[in-house]
Amino acid sequence: MRHAMVHDPVNLLKRYQSRIAQDGFQSDPYQERAIQSLQILANAVLSRTDRRGWFGIKRKAAPVRGLYLYGPVGRGKSMVMDLFFASLPDDVKKRRVHFHDFMIGVHDFMHNRRLAASGKADNDVRDSALLAFADDLARHVRVLCFDEFHVSNVADAMILGRLFAALFDQGVAVVMTSNRAPDDLYKGGLQRDRFLLFIDLLKNRMEILPLSGPVDYRLQYLESSGVYFSPLGSAAHEWADQIFAHLTDGVDAHPDVLEVRGRTVPVTQTARGVARFTFSELCEHPLGAEDYITIARTYHTILLEGVAKLGYDRRNEAVRLMTLVDALYDAGTRLIITADAPVDRLYHGHDHAFEFQRTVSRLTEMQSTEWFARTAQSVSEWHKNDTVRTDGRV
């Protein structure tokens, strides 16, 4: 007797419309096009999961055409992928992972296989390890979603083709978001000619879809929410939490450590190029221009919380804040602040009253639409940079 597990249909368009209404946005035709492709993929995944052989025995999963979404930052790639991922029933084995974290797991698996197979030819060990990894993953995951797919080193480039060919052959459905089109992956990289087979594999086994509408929704959100909140209190902290979650697509943040001439600068939270600091961490400790310049060059957006009113008793903190703002301004780094007073009433001393007027002017400019437009290119370049940064994100 033939048995089947039948899932309720998934309506991604309805979920999408509810989501954008909740966020106060209008439907985006580019996002809707991506939703259509994800709906086709969801239907294929559920249809495949529902089919079982005689006596309830699952048949080997047939290959499913995946989806590769690419385009500039802020266009909603992660959002639509997350809607797809969340819409799949809990009994569908699925995994969403940042590509960098995934590759760390691959290399760890291969390293352990090499240790266990000492004396064998390295190529044979590598190939068998990749196949074993794909087999193991396919047993536990049927849908694999990669966020921020990129290729930044030759070690990854040389194994991706073999690995993903095995995953596709095992019937794993793959969704990827990236800032780069497939043909632009690993441009200028070592031995890139050997990487071209992987690009061809992506084109053959996945739908390649640009999501490059004219609206940067992260930028639009910042313009509507503002980037300076006062006074301090629970409302300011909640506002900062919301902005950080929105700019990082709600991914798990992690600590980081920056090195500056042998010193270390701890970073409390960072994700997606956004770093979160307290005023105490950056301005009540003996940091200087080099530290702030390193921070400005490492992240495209800084969230600075708890800026205190500054007077004679806090003149050192005032100098550090002025230096920090100068470094961020010169680097085109966005700055989001919670403070105990509006910008023009933040400093009430005499020692640095004249110099602080430049800081007031810059903080005011950094809240403007013109500043957002000026820094949009910096944010885009940060995401396009194929160098793995200190926080492991690109």
Rank of each mutant, 00 (worst) to 15 (best):
D156N: 00
D291N: 11
A245S: 10
R95P: 02
R315P: 04
A138K: 07
L160M: 05
T359P: 08
W371P: 05
R297Y: 02
M322A: 11
V106Y: 03
V141A: 01
K93Y: 14
S378Y: 15
R297S: 13
I295A: 07
S178E: 05
V45R: 07
R65K: 11
V125C: 09
T177D: 05
M81P: 06
A21S: 15
A116D: 10
E370C: 12
K384M: 15
E259N: 11
R374H: 15
K187W: 03
Q367H: 03
H254A: 10
P342R: 11
H107S: 06
V106C: 08
E148F: 00
F354G: 10
Y70H: 12
Q242P: 11
F164H: 01
H107N: 10
R272M: 10
Y16D: 13
N316I: 13
L346G: 04
D90W: 11
D28A: 13
P72T: 09
V143F: 01
G288C: 12
S118T: 12
L304R: 05
R48V: 14
E290W: 10
L131C: 13
P29D: 07
E317L: 01
L67F: 05
V154W: 00
S224W: 14
T298L: 02
R95Q: 09
M110R: 11
R33M: 15
L363I: 10
L137M: 09
T248W: 06
D124A: 14
E284Y: 05
A341Y: 00
L46P: 00
